[in-house]
């Protein structure tokens, strides 16, 4: 059985992210390519973070989904370059993240490691404003650069007091 590439993309769009089940693997942007090499279906996957423990689960979920749909000749290929970017999370998924209680990434705010601007921000200038996904208030503060997973930072809303995760821009 050799299903069409479009069909495979649709199936992959039904596989939930193992850590954030309200978005799918295609929403997350980790599927880089689906193609046939001869009779072998090759799915190319990029990891979000190099140490992300969900990577192995994602690969297993892809394999299970496709095998359940009758694909027998399958290979998963890892692609590091270009490195995954949170810019690849699609707009609908950003809304789903917010409804789920996770503030979506604010594009263009990835850490650049340039500390001059950083040091200025410590004095209060130009801090990133992350809206509370629960009440929408901009009156929030960063608790830690790293939240429940490496891809998120921990924030708290100063109005409704809700602690929440912010999906960092990378």
């Amino acid at each position: 059985m050799k299903p069409a590439v479009e069909q495979v993309w649709q199936w992959l769009g039904e596989v939930p992210d193992p850590e954030i089940p309200v978005i799918s693997l295609t929403d997350l942007g980790v599927i880089r390519d689906v193609a046939y090499e001869g009779d072998t279906l090759v799915v190319t996957v990029t990891p979000t973070y190099s140490g992300c423990p969900a990577t192995a689960v994602i690969n297993l979920d892809i394999e299970n989904k496709l095998r359940d749909n009758g694909v027998t000749d399958l290979r998963l290929s890892r692609q590091l370059s270009p490195p995954w970017s949170s810019d690849w999370i699609n707009p609908a998924a950003r809304e789903a993240l917010k409804d789920y209680g996770i503030a979506p990434p604010i594009d263009g705010t990835a850490a650049d490691g340039v500390l001059a601007g950083r040091i200025a921000r410590l004095g209060g200038a130009g801090n990133l404003v992350v809206a509370c996904p629960r009440c929408g208030s901009n009156h929030t503060e960063k608790i830690s650069q790293f939240g429940s997973t490496p891809c998120k930072a921990a924030y708290q809303c100063r109005d409704c007091l809700e602690p929440f995760d912010y999906f960092k821009c990378i």
């Binding site: 973070y49 190099s50 370059s81 490195p83 490691g113 040091i119 990378i170």
Partner: peptide, 26 residues
Amino acid sequence: PRIAEIAAKAGKEVAYHVERSADLVI
């Protein structure tokens, strides 16, 4: 090229490390 692609991946992560450790040292 293999080294270049690993470095590009790791560099994005480490940019957050240096921001955090610098913040806390200060």
